[in-house]
Simulated scan of single mutants.
Amino acid sequence: MPDLIQNLSAVRERIARAAQAAGRDPHSIALLAVSKTFPSEDIRAAHIAGQRAFGENYVQEALAKLDALADLRASIEWHFIGPLQSNKTRVVAERFDWVHSVDRLKIAQRLAEQRPDGLPPLNVCVQVNVSGEASKSGVTPGEAAGVAHAVAALPKLRLRGLMAIPEPTGGIEEQRAPHRALRELFERLRADGLALDTLSMGMSADLEAAVLEGATIVRIGTAIFGARDYSN
Rank of each mutant, 00 (worst) to 15 (best):
A209T: 12
G146I: 04
T169S: 15
E133M: 07
A209N: 09
R180C: 04
L194I: 03
Q175M: 14
E173I: 00
E184C: 06
I172S: 02
T140D: 02
L207M: 15
R190T: 12
P166A: 05
D206E: 12
A153T: 10
D197H: 02
G142H: 04
M201A: 05
A153W: 10
I172W: 03
K136H: 02
R158I: 06
G138A: 04
E143R: 05
A181N: 10
R190C: 13
T169N: 10
G170K: 13
A164N: 00
A153M: 06
L159V: 02
A145V: 00
R190Q: 15
L162C: 06
G132N: 11
M203Y: 09
D206S: 11
H179W: 10
P166W: 04
E184D: 15
E208W: 08
A153R: 14
A177H: 09
S137F: 07
L189C: 03
T140K: 06
E167L: 11
T198R: 13
E143D: 13
K156L: 01
M163R: 01
L185G: 12
E187K: 04
R188H: 09
H179V: 07
T169E: 12
M201T: 10
V151P: 02
G202V: 08
Q175C: 10
P178V: 06
E174K: 12
L212C: 11
